[in-house]
Design a protein around this nucleic acid. Structure first.
Lengths: 221, 221
DNA sequence: TAAATAAGTTAGGTTATACTAACAAATTGA
DNA sequence: TCAATTTGTTAGTATAACCTAACTTATTTA
């Protein structure tokens, strides 16, 4: 049985590992990476790693990189499943906006009851994607696969459909709303500024300008 | 901002205080009562009282009885409101049985979001009573009033309707189910054994025998 | 390659929440 | 009324999760 904090460390490791694999540059997650992500000090991470190693959820050798074990990954996927199902519940049943649900789901994801989450899943009609377009792992930790790419990588004059966002912060989602960008919005790339990657695009027939930071966090196709 | 544990102490005090007022015999809640109810040692209660006093949620003088302040009572009612709304959600929307929801609601009641609980309230159609017949406090801590009495106090040959239960444990609720007793069931008192308060009753035209402990935990009229 | 910097670890302290053991006050009842 | 019992408190310990400060190992770069 894990504490809420232990669950958060596992979830963070799962997230950082997947980010890590996507960005080809860096190899492995270190103590400082995890500390920065969780907003705690490296020494705190160190202590927690000791306990997670004892519980055989994490592999870590002194001065080495941190890796989830198979059991750790399974645990993490279970938490992600709960998080995304709750977000879906909040948006589709309680009519929350997609920028309001993250923090509440961070709390709800720690509720301990397999029966509850399965009933929520059923109640929602077994959704495959959450309100941010993120895939929802099933009961066994399987994630529906889908080809996506960052909007920043799409070529000139292509039209593409928004499938998901890589940042679920309120600030980002509210900005997207202001730009009239939501899941399934069609975006057409008109121009790409080589200097900083800024995009001139068309959304619903209207011109807009997207910074590289924004287009890096939108997944399309 | 209270911790989950602090919230549990407040809720326990609210519960014990109301029980106390109902049972005319004893006056006031002591350290040991609270410790027994929460399954911790009296010394632990003592320390917690110190903190709750600092937060002005509780009044307590050395060797005296423990009382919630007005603020403490308000806080407690807020938690009870959340607990009962979640129980109602679990039963009416997710089709849980009434004997399964208590433990899950004990977790859900600590989710911090006023907006969430108000949306749940709306989603459920502003219910006044939870699946155990307990009244749900509104936003301002007002509880719908209702005349009820213990089944054990009803006179011979009276018929009465079950309004609520005073014990929400799985064991009790499953036993009631076995006896075909639910909210709104009509029970007719046929005989009362003076020796131990055992009741011979009729439920749906069928004879049954209820111990005093059972009839003390059923509220009717 | 050696010095500077970055990354990771250890030691020791803090707070919340529990505990046990020892003790003090209040209540009961012979 | 005073001894026994019950009730409540204090002191000291443990664990989870955090911290700071000091230190060690690894990496980078002049």
């Amino acid at each position: 049985m894990l504490t809420q904090v232990e669950e958060n460390y596992i979830k963070a490791l799962l997230h950082l590992a997947s980010q890590d694999r996507a960005m080809t540059q860096q190899e492995g997650v270190g103590t400082n990476d995890l500390a920065a992500y969780l907003q705690v000090k490296p020494s705190t991470v160190n202590e927690m790693l000791k306990r997670l190693k004892e519980k055989e959820l994490v592999n870590h050798k002194k001065y080495g990189k941190i890796n989830l074990t198979a059991a750790g990954t399974r645990t993490g996927l279970g938490i992600v499943r709960k998080h995304r199902l709750w977000e879906t519940f909040l948006c589709t049943k309680l009519e929350f906006d997609w920028d309001e649900v993250h923090d509440i789901a961070e709390q709800l994801e720690h509720i301990r009851s397999d029966k509850l989450i399965d009933k929520i899943d059923k109640f929602l009609g077994y959704p495959k994607y959450d309100p941010h377009g993120d895939p929802i792992p099933d009961n066994h930790g399987n994630i529906p696969k889908r080809d996506t790419q960052k909007l920043s990588n799409v070529g000139l004059d292509h039209s593409c459909r928004v499938l998901a966002v890589r940042d679920t912060s309120t600030a980002f989602l509210q900005y997207l709303e202001q730009l009239n960008i939501a899941i399934n919005t069609i975006i057409e790339i008109k121009e790409k500024i080589p200097y900083d990657g800024t995009l001139r695009v068309e959304i619903d027939g209207k011109a807009a300008v997207l910074s590289n930071k924004v287009s890096e966090n939108i997944l399309v196709e």
